[in-house]
Design a protein around this nucleic acid. Structure first.
Lengths: 225, 225
DNA sequence: GCGATTTTGTGCGTTTTTTAACGATACTTA
DNA sequence: TAAGTATCGTTAAAAAACGCACAAAATCGC
């Protein structure tokens, strides 16, 4: 994959990156429908970004299109997948086997994209020993050792906010490369560890804002962010 | 609440709104610690935004501070809560009583902020009739009627992406004011209905990107988005 | 094979967002 | 009470993101 003319991808803005999964989602849909090629204009009317922005986004990584033709759906899908790093496998652990942790463990959607949950961890003795979706719930005591021994790539934090930083510290110490944080707190991690937050409450509050009448009405076709 | 000098709040950018819940989170923490006042500079070193940005964000809504003093923690917390629309109650239904729907139903965190789950809905006969966290799981057949009769404000969509648009249509028809969407699809809703998406896969993919080595390393104190 | 057409890649102007600077104002202390 | 200091609100500058326009290049039809 990704034999593209190498560009300097170290300065890509966050805004661009956040749009990539969306491109990929629509391309996947097009693939499923058997569409072979697509132009930036057609993509634009599907996704809602301007054609110009789409072309510019993609050109940050390489010239994937052909003048007079457009983009090859399958090829572009693969390129974006590779850019996102979805052409490899990630081993993950989930810390916190409560409702959310269990839901994520059962969420088989991302398995197909190479994200494999190897174990759940919890401090609660009533949860330790359970099997969720064929995944063992282990005692948090053994977290660091497990992550080290099994070369875990990513840690998912589903604990309360009071425990989250301590867990993050352990995960970083044990060598994870990234943390997916669902706890309602902003974690501090070393620079070499990636961090992605999902603050559900924050998201709900912005919905409340939009509903509450303080906000302007949604202008266009119903897309946002 | 919110007796503030009225400003034109209809043109506030999304970026500002997304920061408000975070301000609120830190102010809550300060309140708990018994801190009375805080300056934009102190807030800056806590949150990681520049002091200038903090002042400008807050001034979009009104002058909540006092020169030479700073901001009153309790007062500012209340103002931001009011701006976000958290000074009232929201009645919600969750559609899709799978793992994620159940997790959200059990997620009592947001109850305190006025978000009350009135019912879950599912098409699966094996789930209908259950009670999750004292909330009934009802048959999706009755969704529209229930939402109308109980004046539901918000609908939470936790179904597969194939059913999501249909559910959204029903919710909108039945009169919800906002939709919190967890399905992996971009929904179309009327302009008067607010939409907030939580695309978990998208979030995970951006984490993969950061980890995969294509991305630049996290520069500063460990905050992002 | 050639001309008309499509559509990309990209330079450039515009808008939006962020950061910096500073005057005005209120607090604090002697 | 008055001088000194802290800090906001706001204006101006800088940076980033976005959209437009067009030349270059490849396709498609005849």
């Amino acid at each position: 994959m990704s034999k593209s003319k190498i560009k300097d991808t170290t300065k890509i803005s966050n805004a661009v990156i956040k749009r990539l999964p969306r491109y990929r989602r629509y391309l996947k849909e097009l693939k499923k429908k058997g569409v072979d090629k697509i132009s930036s204009n057609e993509l634009s009317s599907l996704i809602g970004y301007t054609a110009s922005q789409i072309r510019q986004d993609l050109n940050n990584f390489g010239g994937f299109g052909q003048q007079g033709y457009g983009y090859n759906v399958d090829g572009l899908y693969n390129e974006i997948s590779a850019i996102l790093g979805l052409d490899r496998e990630y081993k993950m652990v989930i810390v916190g086997a409560g409702n959310l942790g269990q839901a994520l463990a059962n969420y088989t959607h991302y398995y197909r994209a190479g994200f494999v949950v190897k174990a759940l961890f919890d401090v609660n003795p009533r949860l330790v020993g359970l099997r969720i979706n064929d995944i063992d719930v282990l005692d948090s005591e053994g977290l660091v050792e497990y992550v080290e021994d099994n070369e875990i790539d990513l840690g998912i934090i589903c604990t309360t906010k009071d425990n989250a930083q301590e867990i993050a510290d352990k995960l970083c110490f044990a060598g994870v490369k990234g943390i997916w944080n669902f706890a309602q707190v902003d974690l501090e991690v070393p620079n070499h560890v990636a961090l992605e937050n999902v603050h559900l409450s924050d998201s709900l509050y912005t919905l409340a804002y939009k509903v509450s009448g303080n906000a302007a009405q949604n202008g266009g076709a119903g897309f946002e962010e």
